[in-house]
C-alpha cells in the first residue's frame, strides 16, 4: 500500500474529472491550435460555486451536531456522550481559566518536533536509499523488518529510554512519521526517469544540480503525499505516548477526563486534536498546491482529449 504512490490519493483522483471550466479551456486549446490562449474562465463564477460547495459540505456536519444535541439525554444518557453545547461550554471554560494551556503547549511541542524530525529523517533516508542502489540493497531488508513492527508497541520502551517527559512522545511520533515519509520518498526518487536524469547530465548538470532540478521536483508529489499522510500518525504517536505515561499533555488531559467521568472534557480534548490536524492539513494542502502547480494543470492537456 505504501508503494502505490501519489496516484492512490483520493483527492488527486477527483482532480482528473475535468470541471466545466477545464473543459472549456481544453476546447480553447484544441481549436486555436498554435495560438496562445487568451483570457481565463471568469474567477467570480468559480468563487460563487466554491462558496455553494462549501455550504453543501457544512450541511452533514451540522445535521450530525443537531442530531447529537437532540438525542443526548433522550436516546442515550448524557453521561456517556455529553452534548455539543456542553462540550462548547467546557472548551470555553478550559480556555478562559487557562487550564488547558500547559497541555496544549506540551502536546503542540511534541507534535511539531516529532513531525519535523520524522519528515526530515524520512526525506534524507528515502533520498539516500533511492539514489544509491548499493546502499539500498544493504539496508532495505532492515527497514522492511522495522516497518513491520507496530510502532505503538514501542511506546513503553521509549518511556524507559527517553523518560516520561516530551522526549518519548517526540520519539514515538517521529518514528511513525519517519517510515511513512521514508517509503514515499524512496518510491518517488526511484521513479525518476533514468533517461531524463541522463539528459540533464548531458545538458551540463553536476550532481547537485541534478538533485535540485530533477530529483527533488520529481519526488515532490511523493514527499508531499507522505507528509500529508503522516499528520494523523504523528497525532497517534503523541497521544498514545501520553496515554502510556506522561506529566502533561492533551492525551493525559483526555485520560484524566475519562477517569473522572467527564465526557464533555474528553470530547473537548478530541476537538482540540481535530483542530490541530485540520490546521496541519490546511498547511500541507497549501504547500502542495504551491509546489505542484504543474501537476494540477495536467487536466487541461489538449492531447488528453
Amino acid at each position: 500500500m505504501m508503494r502505490s504512490g501519489p496516484c492512490s490519493d483520493p483527492r488527486s483522483a477527483s482532480a482528473s474529472n475535468p470541471t466545466e471550466s477545464d473543459r472549456r479551456l481544453m476546447n480553447d486549446l484544441a481549436t486555436t491550435a498554435d495560438q496562445p490562449l487568451a483570457g481565463k474562465p471568469s474567477a467570480r463564477r468559480s468563487l460563487a460555486s466554491k462558496a455553494a460547495r462549501g455550504l453543501m459540505r457544512l450541511l452533514p456536519g451540522l445535521a450530525l451536531l443537531g442530531f447529537w444535541q437532540w438525542a443526548s439525554g433522550r436516546w442515550i444518557m448524557e453521561t456517556y456522550v455529553s452534548k455539543p453545547t456542553a462540550v462548547a461550554a467546557r472548551l470555553y471554560e478550559l480556555f478562559a481559566s487557562g487550564e488547558i494551556y500547559p497541555h496544549l503547549w506540551t502536546t503542540g511541542q511534541e507534535l511539531v518536533l516529532g513531525y519535523v524530525i520524522g519528515v526530515a529523517g524520512g526525506i534524507i533516508g528515502g533520498y539516500m536509499l533511492g539514489r544509491s542502489p548499493r546502499i539500498a540493497s544493504i539496508f532495505e531488508p532492515y527497514v522492511m523488518a522495522f516497518y513491520g513492527i507496530p510502532k505503538i508497541a514501542l511506546a513503553p520502551l521509549f518511556i524507559i529510554w527517553f523518560g516520561i517527559g516530551i522526549g518519548s512522545k517526540i520519539a514515538l511520533a517521529a518514528i511513525m512519521v519517519f517510515f511513512l515519509v521514508f517509503y514515499n520518498v524512496y518510491t518517488g526518487v526511484r521513479s525518476v526517469d533514468r533517461e531524463l536524469a541522463n539528459l540533464t547530465l548531458v545538458m551540463g548538470a553536476n550532481q547537485r544540480q541534478l538533485t535540485y532540478h530533477v530529483y527533488f521536483p520529481a519526488a515532490a508529489p511523493y514527499v508531499l503525499l507522505g507528509m500529508r499522510m503522516a499528520v494523523p500518525y504523528s497525532v497517534i504517536g503523541v497521544i498514545v505516548g501520553e496515554f502510556t505515561s506522561s506529566i502533561q499533555g492533551l492525551g493525559l488531559f483526555i485520560r484524566e477526563a475519562s477517569a473522572t467521568y467527564d465526557p464533555a472534557g474528553v470530547f473537548a480534548g478530541i476537538v482540540i486534536l481535530l483542530v490541530f490536524v485540520a490546521i496541519a492539513n490546511f498547511l500541507a494542502g497549501r504547500l502542495e498546491r504551491r509546489l505542484l502547480r504543474w501537476k494540477t494543470l495536467t487536466v487541461a492537456a489538449p492531447n488528453d482529449i
Binding site: E195, N198, V202, P217
Partner: peptide
C-alpha cells in the same frame, strides 16, 4: 565521461513537467 558538448533529443520529448 558524460559528454557535455553534445545535445540529445530523445524519442519522447522529455521536457521537465515541473518547468
Amino acid at each position: 565521461t558524460i559528454n557535455r558538448e553534445v545535445g540529445f533529443v530523445p524519442q519522447q520529448a522529455q521536457l521537465f513537467p515541473w518547468k
